[in-house]
Simulated scan of single mutants.
Amino acid sequence: KNINSIILDLSKCLFIEKDIWDYFIELKKELQNKNGDLVLINMNGAVKNDYNIMELSNYLESFNDISSAFYNFGILTDIKSA
């Protein structure tokens, strides 16, 4: 209840079935209706490959780390580069 935005860390995920990708897209739509969002972080290997092959960047935004995701939501206002 009352959750508008979700950052989903996929760093330990080795594979995602198409039905789960579809669920993520539907969940994002539901959250956007509540002025929220769903973003993905830390994708690796087959998960990142599938994300790219299915061109899911058109539907689900992804970031390399949690700081970038927080910045996307306006939680962090400055990200210092190394």
Score class of each variant (00 low, 15 high):
residue 45 G to D: 06
residue 80 K to E: 11
residue 63 F to P: 05
residue 2 N to S: 13
residue 2 N to G: 15
residue 60 L to F: 14
residue 13 C to S: 09
residue 19 D to E: 11
residue 37 D to Y: 11
residue 4 N to P: 06
residue 43 M to A: 07
residue 52 N to H: 05
residue 6 I to D: 03
residue 6 I to E: 00
residue 22 D to Q: 03
residue 3 I to F: 07
residue 2 N to Y: 09
residue 74 G to L: 10
residue 52 N to V: 06
residue 82 A to Y: 09
residue 67 S to L: 11
residue 27 L to K: 09
residue 78 D to R: 07
residue 15 F to E: 13
residue 62 S to T: 04
residue 55 E to W: 03
residue 77 T to F: 11
residue 3 I to T: 13
residue 24 F to E: 00
residue 4 N to F: 12
residue 81 S to H: 13
residue 30 E to Y: 07
residue 50 D to I: 11
residue 58 N to T: 14
residue 39 V to R: 03
residue 18 K to I: 12
residue 55 E to G: 09
residue 37 D to M: 05
residue 28 K to R: 09
residue 71 Y to Q: 07
residue 61 E to A: 08
residue 13 C to V: 15
residue 36 G to F: 01
residue 80 K to S: 12
residue 51 Y to K: 06
residue 1 K to V: 08
residue 53 I to H: 06
residue 17 E to D: 14
residue 68 S to T: 10
residue 3 I to P: 07
residue 39 V to I: 13
residue 31 L to E: 04
residue 62 S to V: 06
residue 27 L to I: 03
residue 62 S to W: 02
residue 23 Y to Q: 01
residue 35 N to W: 05
residue 58 N to M: 10
residue 67 S to T: 07
residue 60 L to D: 09
residue 67 S to Y: 13
residue 17 E to L: 08
residue 53 I to G: 01
residue 63 F to E: 05
residue 28 K to P: 00
residue 66 I to H: 01
residue 67 S to I: 08
residue 27 L to N: 01
residue 13 C to N: 03
residue 46 A to V: 13
residue 1 K to E: 14
residue 49 N to C: 02
residue 78 D to I: 14
residue 47 V to A: 03
residue 8 L to S: 00
residue 33 N to R: 14
residue 43 M to Y: 04
residue 72 N to G: 02
residue 34 K to F: 02
residue 24 F to L: 12
residue 79 I to E: 12
residue 24 F to A: 01
residue 70 F to S: 07
residue 12 K to V: 02
residue 25 I to E: 07
residue 12 K to P: 00
residue 44 N to M: 11
residue 14 L to Q: 14
residue 34 K to Y: 02
residue 13 C to W: 01
residue 67 S to N: 15
residue 9 D to H: 06
residue 8 L to N: 00
residue 42 N to V: 03
residue 14 L to E: 14
residue 21 W to N: 05
residue 9 D to A: 07
residue 10 L to W: 04
residue 31 L to Y: 04
residue 27 L to M: 06
residue 43 M to S: 07
residue 4 N to C: 10
residue 20 I to S: 10
residue 23 Y to I: 01
residue 33 N to M: 06
residue 69 A to S: 10
residue 5 S to K: 07
residue 26 E to F: 09
residue 2 N to I: 10
residue 78 D to Q: 13
residue 61 E to W: 01
residue 52 N to Y: 09
residue 70 F to C: 13
residue 50 D to K: 06
residue 43 M to G: 04
residue 19 D to H: 11
residue 38 L to H: 01
residue 65 D to N: 15
residue 49 N to K: 12
residue 9 D to L: 03
